[in-house]
Design a protein around this nucleic acid. Sequence first.
DNA 1: TTCGTGATACCC
DNA 2: GGTATCACGAAC
Length: 167
Amino acid sequence: MSGIIAETEAYRGRRDPASHAYRGRTERNAVMFGEAGHAYVYFTMGMHYCLNVTTEPPGNAGAVLLRAIEPLEGVEEMVRNRGQDKGVHIADGPGRLTKALRIDRSLNGEDIVTSERLFIERGPKPKRLGKSTRIGVSKGVDREWRFFVMGSRFVSKGKPPVSTQNP
DNA sequence: TTCGTGATACCC
DNA sequence: GGTATCACGAAC
């Protein structure tokens, strides 16, 4: 299965009150404090997994949450993984994305640079990027750290862009 | 808009 | 050990 990343959000460390790492390192968020290029997968809201990729050198926390992909290969498998609903609502939203791709805690800490199970390749450059504040956070709401492909049907519902830019 | 659902973290 | 909180989704 594969897809093109369509929507992400950035989370940082001690200075980002919306981040899991804000209150320091714990067993759950330990991966965020490790090497860049690893998967940070956590379980939330009693039912959803979310997938992040770490971005900072060891000691500094930081990660990018993958919020949506445009399904590319293995679409039927993704639909099966997701259960009933179909259409474009296959992987738009962090919980849907992980369910469609069958990502769970077994991938937490996975080195996506060397892994065969989970990795990122360079894809087509989006025509236009949108930017907005992050979704579902109550702190750090002023930070415009959500980025998405403008006009993509595969971006999760939510906030319109506060601004756009060419990449 | 409402509610299901369970891990986590932090305070006793 | 108790409990408030939570980077959400699906059905109303």
